[in-house]
């Protein structure tokens, strides 16, 4: 079964707002794209489309948060965090404001629109910010849990979502442990670490090659212990992400391994922007992130 994370986000928000009356939903004129239309119709007093104005989207959300509400501000990841980094740096993080930032259409998942709409630097931006916590769910099931977890966390959270219809492979009933790297498969030959929908491809490769596969759904805080334990056990690490190889998941892993060296190969988007394509898979092929690519790199380690 395949499902888009944004659909899961819209459903989770309806359920969350039903249970928690402090939850607000805000967007910068992308209600339908981030699946907040139903939320807006149901919770008319707790929904704001601020217009095409991402900087103000952040400021208004911060104001609501400082008064005790829990605003979820959603847009495309290229705009949020991309366009309003300074508002996030100062008004969100330097206030420790309880704002949940939702960057949808992350990575290459907005395949048709091309480079301006494809977010391959957002993790680097958010990782550098003190106070920020980052969740990158692996599938639609995990999105729902991440939304509820984010609402419980006091302080800024960045939630990274994909637009694409991607495999639903995590168990609906499994617990989501925020901050804890999830070992999806035990293995001996190498460790493959990923986040987002590419975790599925990694899992397939892991089964072929007896690799340990880790879903690093929480990028920050970084679960150093689980990563280092696995790396030391297998002796080789492959990181895979739909993000620039600079500043994202691979970099986080490298920062940890540099102090306790284990060979690491980083897979991601090599210092370039994306481009238009007729399908998502075409882009994953072009940028070398298919299961075949992952298997090849894993074998070459």
């Amino acid at each position: 079964m395949e499902k888009s994370m944004r659909d899961a986000f819209g459903e989770a928000m309806l359920e969350l707002a039903e249970k928690n009356e402090r939850v607000f939903g805000l967007t910068a004129d992308l209600s339908s794209s981030v699946r907040l239309e139903a939320f807006g119709e149901k919770f008319t007093n707790r929904f704001f489309n601020v217009g095409v104005a991402e900087a103000n989207l952040i400021g208004v959300s911060v104001g609501l948060a400082l008064e005790g509400f829990i605003p979820f501000a959603a847009s495309f990841a290229v705009f949020l965090p991309g366009r309003c980094f300074d508002q996030i740096r100062v008004s969100v993080c330097q206030n420790k404001a309880n704002v949940k930032l939702v960057g949808s259409h992350a990575g290459l998942s907005n395949y048709g629109d091309g480079a301006t709409a494809q977010s391959v630097c957002d993790l680097a931006l958010m990782r550098a910010l003190p106070e920020m916590k980052i969740i990158c769910p692996a599938d639609a099931n995990q999105v729902k849990k991440a939304v509820f977890a984010a609402a419980k966390i006091e302080g800024p959270v960045y939630l990274r979502l994909s637009r694409a219809e991607t495999p639903v492979f995590t168990n609906e009933k499994d617990l989501f442990s925020f901050g804890k790297a999830e070992v999806l498969r035990k293995g001996k030959k190498l460790t493959i670490i990923s986040c987002g929908s590419l975790v599925y491809n990694c899992l397939k490769v892991g089964e072929q090659l007896d690799a340990e596969v880790i879903n690093l759904h929480t990028l920050k805080p970084f679960d150093r212990e689980t990563i280092l334990n696995s790396a030391k056990k297998t002796g080789k690490v492959l990181s895979v992400e739909e993000h620039s190889i600079f500043g994202g998941l691979g970099s986080a892993v490298a920062e940890a391994l540099a102090q306790d060296p284990v060979p690491l190969k980083m897979m991601g988007i090599a210092d370039s922007f994306g481009q238009s394509a007729r399908s998502y898979s075409e882009l994953l092929e072009r940028y070398g992130l298919t299961s075949e690519d992952i298997a090849r790199e894993a074998k070459s380690l």
Binding site: G59, G63, L64, A65, L66, V90, S91
Partner: peptide, 24 residues
């Protein structure tokens, strides 16, 4: 009330607070 110093952010935060106060 809110950290400031990077220009252009205060009125947005104030607008959010105003919305919140109305809501309460």
């Amino acid at each position: 009330e809110t950290s400031t110093g990077s220009l252009g952010q205060g009125l947005s935060v104030g607008a959010g607070m105003a919305l919140a106060l109305k809501s309460k």
